[in-house]
Amino acid sequence: MQAPIVAEPGIRVSLAELIEMRHRVREVQLFSTPARRSPLIGLHHSKLRGRGVDFDQVRVYQAGDDVRTIDWRVTARTQEPHTKLFHEERERPIFILVEQSQRLFFGSGLVFKSVLAAQAAALIGWAALGHNDRVGGLVFGDNEHHEIKPRRSKHSLLQLLNRLVRVNQALHTEAQPGRDAFGLALRRAREVLRPGSLVIVLCDERALTESTEQQLSLLARHTDLLLLPLSDPLDHALPAAGLLQFTERGAQLELDTHSIELRQAYHAQGEARRTHWQLLAQKLGVPLLPLSTQGEMVEQLLDHLNAQRPRKQQ
Rank of each mutant, 00 (worst) to 15 (best):
A220L: 04
D232V: 04
P287I: 03
D224H: 12
L302C: 12
A118N: 02
R49D: 09
T293D: 01
F31W: 06
A241I: 14
R273A: 06
T75P: 01
R152V: 07
D133A: 09
S46W: 12
V25M: 09
V199K: 03
R194C: 07
L226R: 03
E213K: 15
P287L: 02
G295F: 06
Q57S: 15
S101K: 03
K283D: 11
L138W: 07
Q300M: 07
E20R: 15
H276A: 15
W72I: 07
R59W: 04
P229R: 02
G285A: 07
F86P: 00
A3S: 08
V98M: 02
D71H: 05
Y266T: 04
V165I: 04
R90H: 04
P239I: 13
R36K: 04
S32M: 03
P4K: 10
H276Q: 11
R103Y: 01
S101P: 05
A63S: 10
V165G: 01
Q159I: 09
R90N: 05
V13L: 01
I70Q: 01
V111Q: 04
G64V: 14
L164H: 02
H82N: 06
R274G: 08
P93I: 05
A181H: 07
R12W: 00
G250D: 10
T78A: 08
Q102N: 03
R59C: 05
Q294Y: 11
P150S: 06
Q176N: 06
